[in-house]
Amino acid sequence: MSSYVTPDRSAAPYVDPTPEATQPHVPEVGATSAPLKSAAFFIGAYCKEYNDDFMLCKAENRNPEHCLKEGRRVTRCAIDLIEKLRENCATEFQRHWECLDFRNQEYYRCRKEERLLNGCAFDKLGLTKKIPGTSPGKTPIHEVPNPIYRNVQK
């Protein structure tokens, strides 16, 4: 019997005993939740093909072994996009995700920063934020000029 000790409590430094799988190495995205949430719609727009391909593959078979190749493409694409965002819209991106981090990760409380980021992403990368399923003829929620739900804190 071995009992589990959390890595931060153990005396010796934690070493993951399971080896790297016999698969080509792919760097992980390594972003925390706020930058990911900030970039989510751009990832959806930029990596649509890879994402759809991966999800169709997953629908075929849920075994993690089945879709490793597609999964690597998805990860590479996400890394690529985040790097592009950081190259072209560094300040806007950072301000938006820091705002999200600070505001409970709610989009409606960071519209000002979001508009700057969206504008930059459209100008430099040609990416638009689009929420699928918005009823035609209605302003999508992130472009409503005078919303009822807004950030009330300073």
Partner: peptide, 25 residues
């Protein structure tokens, strides 16, 4: 707003799933 949030999750799902799959494998 709820829908916007859900779609942001949907767009992130493949990436998170792929990462988790590699670890599971």
């Amino acid at each position: 707003l709820k829908r916007e949030n859900i779609w942001s999750r949907i767009y992130l799902t493949p990436m998170l799933l792929a990462e988790g799959d590699r670890d599971a494998y």
